[in-house]
């Protein structure tokens, strides 16, 4: 199935009231963030998308692909499943080395050049991690951040899924702004569940969740995009300090002053 758009029609929140956001539609290349306090139903919303909810989940939402609902009987060829969900608790459990796992996955997905796909996947993943992933490492030996990086890279390159759902990737200790930058090069639909203001403002849209319900849909305006740029600098400042600390340096006030200078922010 060739996916051009996905549309979510609102259902009901935890109170049974209809959702204020009646529908939203995403086209290829769109990035949307789902925000709100914990327990407000963010993960439920992406689960509904993953399941192609057809008024058959507790939220009563309807998810349509290219303007059509997906019937309950319809099953995608699992090798061509259009949605990859990278959840908060997704971990690798397979007892295979990274290289072999990727090779089988590339074979399953039927790419023309598996070796190249594996190379690209590792290159992508290694831009997000601290220490590089090596092909002979066992999947289960990867750290949390390496695991999340490899999952994202695999979903984008080998899986080539048109719709990618990412649940709180900021918790994984990976370079998240870099992740978003890299992801933006691919013309896919990305849905982020996030508590990170920088990711939220780099998205094209954001949905504010409250009490299990889609409360508000905001299209990122030009002023917000500027703010996103500034937040990116603060993000980088934090990353620079992380690098100092990781590399065993002692932190001085001078370092802080230099960093603040690059921010060009007035206190």
């Amino acid at each position: 199935m060739d996916i051009q758009s996905i549309c979510v029609m609102g259902g009901t929140g935890k109170t049974g009231e209809p959702e204020k956001v009646e529908r939203f539609e995403l086209n290829m290349g769109d990035i949307i963030s789902i925000v709100g306090p914990t327990g407000c139903g963010k993960t439920t919303l992406i689960n509904d998308i993953e399941l192609f909810a057809n008024r058959n989940t507790p939220s009563n939402r309807l998810v349509m692909i290219n303007g059509e609902p997906i019937s309950e009987d319809f099953t995608f060829d699992p090798r061509k499943h259009p949605i990859a969900l990278i959840s908060q608790h997704t971990n690798f459990l397979s007892d295979l080395p990274v290289g072999e796992f990727l090779k089988i996955h590339a074979k399953v997905r039927g790419g023309d050049n598996p070796e190249q796909m594996i190379g690209e996947t590792l290159e992508f993943a290694n831009q997000l991690t601290g220490e590089a992933i090596i092909t002979t490492t066992g999947m289960t030996e990867l750290s949390g951040g390496q695991t999340r990086s490899l999952l994202i890279a695999d979903a984008v390159i080998i899986g080539n899924s048109p719709i990618i759902l990412l649940d709180e990737i900021e918790n994984a200790g990976i370079h998240r702004s870099r992740a978003l930058e890299l992801l933006k090069q691919f013309k896919k639909i990305f849905v982020f569940v996030t508590h990170d203001p920088h990711i939220a403002l780099l998205s094209d849209y954001r949905i504010i969740m409250k009490n299990g319900s889609m409360e508000k849909l905001i299209c990122t305006n030009p002023a917000e995009r500027k703010v996103a740029g500034e937040l990116g600098k603060i993000d980088n400042l934090m990353l620079n300090f992380r690098t100092y600390i990781r590399s065993g340096q002692e932190i001085s006030e001078k370092m802080m002053a230099e960093q603040m200078e690059t921010l060009k922010l007035t206190n």
């Binding site: 699992p78 090798r79 499943h81 949605i83 990859a84 969900l85 990278i86 608790h89 997704t90 971990n91 690798f92 459990l93 397979s94 295979l96 796992f101 089988i104 996955h105 074979k107 399953v108 997905r109 999952l151 695999d154 979903a155 080998i158 899986g159 899924s161």
Partner: peptide, 12 residues
């Protein structure tokens, strides 16, 4: 409990 990628490999 597992990723889409692992599901596909396990199925294979």
């Amino acid at each position: 409990l597992i990723s889409q990628a692992e599901r596909e490999v396990f199925r294979y």
